[in-house]
Nucleic acid binder design. Structure first.
Lengths: 362, 362
DNA sequence: CTGATATGTGAGAACGTTCTCGCCCAAGAA
DNA sequence: TTCTTGGGCGAGAACGTTCTCACATATCAG
C-alpha cells in the first residue's frame, strides 16, 4: 500500500516500464506524455506510495517554495497576527513558512537570517532590530534574495517595506485627547536607545519643529514624534516629565515606569501608550494603583488587543491592520520572487482610531 | 567581498588549490585535514562568501534539521505559546521550524502534513483535528517519520503525546465553585460534534458514572466530564440547560450562546468556560448584558490569558503550562529523531487553579 | 516533396553536497 | 625488514529530482 518508506521516481519508472525521464514528466507535470504512459506511471506511483522529494526538486530548480520569516516573538499578538497574514498568502500560493524568533536580539536576527539563507528560502520577511547596522540584510539583498521589511526600516537599505503610519496615527490619538480637554497627557513608550540623539535632544528638536529623519526611526520614537506634533498643533507645551520611558520591550518595564508619574505632584489626566506591550504593563500598573478609567484617568492605547473591546469601559485605541500588513508584505515578496521589477516600495498602512469608553472630557 | 551570488564547494576548492573532497571536509567539519589546507580553504571560503547549501547536504544525509508543526491558528494564544515552546528547544538544538495553520479543518491538516513530508522534515508535531479518522497520520508513522501529538489524541495511533490533564483540572475548577456555595453552575464549551454519542447520551453516561473512553475525547468534552464529576462528588445534579454548547471554535459562538441562559427563569450563579476562546466570547456577552463579575455572577475560566490578571477584579482561572507543553513535545520529538526507542509515551501536564477575584461566596 | 511545428520518448548530465574508496606517507610494533 | 595503524588527500559515486539533448513520429503549410 501507500505506507512503505520511500519510493523514488526511478522505482516508479521501473514498475511502470518507462524511463525515469518519462516518469519524471508525468509526476512533475512538465513536458509531453501520452495518455497511455501517464496512466501507467500514475498507477505505479499510487501503488508504491510515491511522494516527491521536494529537496531534490529544489536543488535542481533553485526554488524551494518556502518563505523565511524573522519576527520578534510569535507570542506577541502583533507578530502573531502579522505572521498569520503572511501565512494566509503563502498558503494560497503553495509556499511553506520557515519561522524564527529574534527576541529583539541583533545576534539572534543575524543567526536566523543565515540559517534561512542556508536553507535556500526563496525570500525573506524581516522585522529588523537595528535600523543602522544590518550588514547581514545588505548581504542578503546583494545576493539577490528578495527581502521585505515589516514595521521598521533600515537606513540606506532599498527594499520593499510595509509599516503603519505611526506618526499620523499617534498624532491623531493625542489630538483626540487634547480635543476632549486634556492638557497634561502622559506617554508610555519603550524608547530603547538609538544612540544617535538623547531623548532630550530628540524632544527639543521635535518641539522646535526641526526636520527629523523619521523613516528609519523606531516605531516608538515615531509615535513619540506624533505625540509631540499633536501638542504643537494644539498649542500645548510638552512636559518632559510626562514622557514615561520604559527602555525595553517588556510589560514589566512599563508597569514600573507608570506609578512614579501618577503619584507625582502634577500627575497627567490622560495616558497614551505606544503599543500592546506598553498597554498591558500600563493596565497592570493602573490596576495596582486602583485608578479607574476613565473616572480618574483617561487612556488611549496603540494596537487593538482582544481585551480592549470587552474590558469595561472599553479602551479607545489606535487599530493597526496587522493581518493586512502581513498579507501585503507576503504579496510584495511573492511579486519579487516572480521576478517583477519595481523601484523599492514603501507601503504605509493607515491606522484607525477606535473610540470606546476610556476617554472622558475634563 | 562576501556579497556575490553563490560560491560552491567546488569554487572554494579551486580557489584554495585543493580537491572538492578536501574542501568539503573542512567546510563540513568531517574527516581529517591538515592545519595548512584547512587555513587555505577557510580563507578561500571567506573571500568567496561561501555559504553551504543545506538542500544539497540534506539530500545526501537524509536529515534536514527541520521540524514540521501543524497547529490550529498561530493567532490563538494557546497555539502561539505552544509554538514558542517548540521554537525554544528547536533553536537550542539547531533545528528550523516549518509552521502551518490547519484552522481546525481536516482537509487543511492533511494537506499540511503532506507538504511537510515532501519537504522532508525530520519530525512532525501535530494538533490533530479528527480523533477518529487520521489516515495521513498513521501513514506518517508507518513511514517511520517521528510524530508527536499535542493537546488531542488519535484513537489507536501509538505515538508520543503531550496534553493537559483536562478532566482533573476542570473538576478542580468546578469543585472550587461548589465549595464557595454555588449550586447552579453553567458551563460554556465548544463541544463540536464527535458523532459517536449525542450530548444527552454523553451527559447521562457521565452522570451515571459509566466508564467512558476519555483518552481520545476532545479537550472540551474532557472538561465537560470534569464538570460533571465535580457535580457527582459534590452531590449536585447536573441541569442540562446549564450546558451552553457553542458548537464551534469561535468567540462569536460563545457570545451567542450565553445570553439566553443568563436571561432564563433560573439563571446560573456561576459560569465555567472551557478555553480561551470561550472565555473571550463569554466576557463579551457579559459586557453586553451589563453583568458584573463577581457581584452578579461568578466566573472561572480555563487557560490563563494576559488580560485575566489585570482586568478587574481579576479572573480566577485554570492555568495550563502552554510553553512547557510545546517544549516537552519538541524534546520528545528530538529524542525520537536521535533514534531513541521507547514505547509510546503520554505526558499529562498538571494545570494550576489560579485564584483571583471573579468568584464570590453565595 | 520540403520544411516547419508539435508531440512523444529515453540517455545522460546537472544541481551541491557527503560518502566510499583507494592511495600515499609516517611512525611504531613485530 | 615487514606489517599495522592512522592521518591526509583526491577521484568519483551517490542522493532524487529536472533539464538538455538527440531522435523519433505525425501533421500541416507552401
Amino acid at each position: 500500500m501507500s505506507s512503505k518508506s520511500k519510493a523514488t521516481i526511478a522505482d516508479v519508472a521501473r514498475a511502470a516500464g518507462v524511463s525515469t525521464a518519462t516518469a519524471g514528466r508525468v509526476l512533475g507535470h512538465y513536458g509531453y506524455t501520452s495518455e497511455e504512459k501517464k496512466e501507467q506511471v500514475l498507477k505505479a506511483a499510487q501503488e508504491l506510495g510515491y511522494r516527491p522529494n521536494a529537496l531534490a526538486r529544489s536543488l535542481i530548480t533553485g526554488k524551494t517554495r518556502t518563505l523565511g520569516v524573522v519576527a520578534g516573538d510569535i507570542q506577541n499578538p502583533f507578530y502573531a497576527s502579522v505572521i498569520r497574514g503572511i501565512s494566509n498568502v503563502a498558503d494560497a500560493n503553495g509556499f511553506g513558512l520557515l519561522i524564527t524568533n529574534s527576541d529583539e536580539i541583533p545576534a539572534h536576527e543575524v543567526h536566523a537570517v543565515e540559517l534561512l539563507a542556508q536553507k535556500q528560502v526563496d525570500g525573506l520577511i524581516v522585522t529588523p532590530i537595528d535600523t543602522r547596522r544590518a550588514r547581514h540584510l545588505f548581504s542578503i539583498k546583494a545576493m539577490g534574495m528578495p527581502l521585505v521589511l515589516i514595521d521598521r526600516a533600515v537606513g540606506g537599505l532599498m527594499v520593499d517595506r510595509v509599516a503603519t503610519d505611526n506618526i499620523a496615527a499617534a498624532e491623531q490619538a493625542v489630538r483626540h485627547l487634547i480635543g476632549e480637554g486634556h492638557r497634561r497627557i502622559g506617554i508610555v513608550a519603550e524608547l530603547v536607545d538609538e544612540n544617535f540623539m538623547t531623548l532630550d535632544q530628540f524632544v527639543s528638536h521635535a518641539i522646535a519643529g526641526d526636520p527629523i529623519e523619521s523613516e528609519t526611526l523606531y516605531p516608538s520614537w515615531q509615535r513619540l514624534l506624533g505625540y509631540i506634533r499633536a501638542h504643537r498643533i494644539g498649542g500645548l507645551t510638552v512636559d518632559p516629565r510626562l514622557i514615561m520611558r520604559a527602555g525595553s520591550y517588556s510589560a514589566q518595564a512599563a508597569q514600573d515606569v507608570v506609578p512614579p508619574a501618577m503619584t507625582s505632584a502634577h500627575p497627567p489626566t490622560a495616558l497614551f501608550t505606544t503599543d500592546g506591550t506598553m498597554s498591558e504593563g500600563t493596565m497592570r500598573a493602573l490596576t495596582m494603583l486602583k485608578l479607574s478609567v476613565p473616572e480618574n484617568l483617561s487612556l488611549v492605547c496603540f494596537d487593538d488587543l482582544d481585551w480592549m473591546s470587552f474590558l469595561r469601559p472599553g479602551i479607545t485605541t489606535v487599530s493597526q491592520p496587522r493581518l493586512a500588513m502581513g498579507e501585503a508584505a507576503a504579496r510584495m515578496l511573492l511579486e519579487r520572487i516572480r521576478g517583477e521589477e519595481y523601484p523599492s516600495r514603501t507601503v504605509l498602512m493607515p491606522a484607525e482610531l477606535i473610540l470606546r469608553g476610556s476617554v472622558s472630557r475634563v
